[in-house]
Design a protein around this nucleic acid. Structure first.
Lengths: 400, 400
DNA sequence: GGTGAATTGTTGCTGTCGAAAACATATCAG
DNA sequence: CTGATATGTTTTCGACAGCAACAATTCACC
């Protein structure tokens, strides 16, 4: 025998010497990515590491092309001025969001900066093969426009459906009519860049928690309402709730009304069927409109039927959120899409509904907010997914 | 000015050199605690660390009085036999569980071994002061019975109610009539040993996940039914769901029936009001009985009214669990207390109910199990809480 | 029973990393 | 211009995990 099958290191629980180095590099890069430019002295304070250590780590990040330093123009304090550390624009991620009528593709830099965005309209819901074609063409075009020193480090795909994150297979995307379709792997193979896929609501929450309404908060319940239904995700102790296979967070398919109608998922009285943009458009008597216009219509309506429907939906939403408060005890609830509009139309009513439907006084301790990132949301979220490996181990991914 | 306020190290994000050592010590101790005795070679494989490193770490744990080694009696394989590493019985935790009619106190060793257990009956629900008195007396008695080299490293309190884990204040324990009562801190002060408090369901899940039905599983929904209601907790990626203040997991107070009755918590149609041991005892026409007897009565009944009530409760429970499956995508559901009896009376019906009430096919991928630890449950769980700091940093807690 | 292969403990050495200290540099306050 | 303050820079040092060489012990096979 020559080469035996590998002895299988089982699990890598222990900590070794250079893992500490990797961890520290990752910590600093992540700090800059999520917190913006800082002085080296600031990094020293934030990490608790030694000045000399920070200097060495920043130098390594600079060598990897991830950061550069500038002199402070106006220190404002005594002492030797500490140089600012900025992220470069050299490392980029491609963000992809296939949806009902279009595939949106963006180029995103570190720090959540969206460099460009293209919306590829499709006559019908795009198929997997079609999506992969569009992504391939678009990435080629993007690559052609890059500077010599720029580099796309990954592709992130935000998919409206159940996604097995481990291997990037879309288990079920009902509105796209996808069923057990491998996505991340073929994309990676075609474009020659690592690709990862995840549920759109999970990535939306990730984006809001890092760059939007949820900055600095570790426990968040996030609900996003779109024409295709209500997607949800939960931040638990700073990490998105994944579940055993990445399918967690189907908050739109929890019970809110035992007397409700049957949902396409087979259950009865789901939040998604009771609270829907379709019912609102119906009483408003209009066709789908864009977000700002919808906001205005809900806010300024004087029609009693409309107001009644708004209040009914807010009350149902309050019941659902009350349950989530009892389950998750979040410090913040973030509402996106039309749920944000609904909330803005009568914030007090929703807050009172949550308070009433929560266990004990838990409902009084939670803040309800509207999502902030709007159109950037899924671009930033999908990019975060693509940047993930690099953020976790900068030297390992970019190095030799 | 002489002494300025401390410069505040903000957060300790960075990794330093001896933190690696602590982490490795913690890893090995935890491995033994949760996995039982192992050979040094086994630890090498499990951690991926070097032989020589393991030898040094085990030697340090031995010096701390935590482990000892024995020769393998019958190796059974080629090669130099690796010594077994066992946990000593020198480090002990006191587990406390105040409940409706008694305070139970136990002495628990590493590895989940319950050395002794005392049940202090009380005429009514014990007050906080009374509980602290009982604990103080009992700990003194336990200390008197210890060998010279034995040591109680902590007190863990499992409380049926909302507990702010950070400072051990019981915010609300409705059945004990406790309201915003400091508990862990006064206990620690009185007995002179660090004390921590947490919700009983959270600790029950912790115990089952480490030593019972949930071994090796990272995503679990746990429900425990008792005469005072239904408590729940969730294991998310191997960690118990805490929420922003430690109040997460009130699964008994989620909506299962919009047409239901009003719960003491103020809401309507809570799981806890629809599924209750009281309703079962009513149709059975008996007074409260112990677990095994209750099991037998449910399993062997031929009374149609009883069977109907069992099925009704199972169906309601299925709806609740279906929601939890959509929310958490667990790989396992564990049922304790009378919910375990209910499940055992007709497992197929509950499983079918969960499947029906789950989103898509998620309900088919989850296994439903009955809790295993029974009377040891809260002793082991509370001890785990008490052992926590030592497991996380053995040298820091036991060393100088 | 003797021999070789396999596995693991033991010992001493090495490389790496972060901390600490000493020195250099840059800013502000007066 | 001087002193205080804060931070970068350089060098030294200690700790720790990895590694290699050697020793110990068992099994399998003849």
């Amino acid at each position: 025998m020559s080469v035996e099958s590998a002895p299988a290191p089982l699990s890598r629980v222990g900590n070794s010497n250079d893992q500490a180095r990797r961890h520290n590099l990752s910590t600093i890069l992540t700090l800059l990515h999520h917190g913006g430019s800082q002085t080296r002295a600031g990094l020293t304070r934030a990490t608790g590491l030694n000045r000399s250590t920070i200097a060495a780590l920043v130098a390594e990040l600079a060598e990897l092309g991830l950061v550069y330093e500038t002199q402070q123009t106006d220190p404002g304090t005594v002492g030797r001025p500490s140089p600012f550390v900025h992220l470069t624009d050299r490392m980029l991620a491609v963000a992809v969001n296939p949806d009902l009528d279009a595939v949106t593709i963006g180029l995103v830099g570190l720090g959540g900066r969206v460099h460009s965005r293209v919306r590829h309209e499709t006559p019908a819901a795009p198929g997997v093969a079609e999506t992969i074609d569009i992504v391939t063409r678009e990435v080629d075009a993007l690559r052609a426009g890059l500077d010599d020193d720029q580099r796309i480090v990954g592709v992130g795909l935000a998919v409206p459906g159940l996604v097995r994150t481990s291997d990037g297979v879309v288990t079920l995307a009902p509105h796209l009519l996808w069923n057990d379709e491998p996505l991340a792997e073929p994309v990676a193979a075609r474009v020659g860049i690592p690709a990862l896929a995840a549920n759109d609501a999970q990535l939306g929450l990730l984006a809001e928690s890092l760059f939007g309404a949820g900055r600095g908060v570790d426990d968040i319940v996030y609900l996003n309402g779109s024409t295709s239904g209500i997607g949800g995700s939960v931040l638990v102790a700073g990490r998105t709730l994944q579940g055993s296979r990445g399918y967690a967070g189907e908050l739109g398919h929890t019970l809110v009304n035992s007397n409700g109608v049957t949902c396409f998922c087979g259950k009865t009285g789901c939040l998604e069927t009771e609270v829907s943009v379709g019912r609102l458009l119906e009483v408003l008597g209009v066709d789908p409109v864009d977000g700002d216009e919808f906001d205005r219509m809900l806010g300024e309506t004087v029609d009693d039927a409309v107001r009644a429907e708004i209040d009914r939906q807010l009350d149902v939403l309050g019941v659902a959120l009350g349950n989530f408060v009892a389950i998750f005890n979040p410090s913040s609830i973030i509402l996106g899409g039309f749920l944000g509009s609904l909330f803005a139309a009568n914030p007090a009513r929703l807050q009172e509904g949550i308070r009433r439907a929560s266990f004990g006084t838990l409902g009084e301790q939670v803040t309800v907010e509207r999502a902030q990132l709007r159109t950037r949301l899924l671009m930033v979220g999908a990019a975060e997914l693509a940047f993930g490996p690099m953020l976790a181990d900068p030297a390992g991914v970019l190095g030799p």
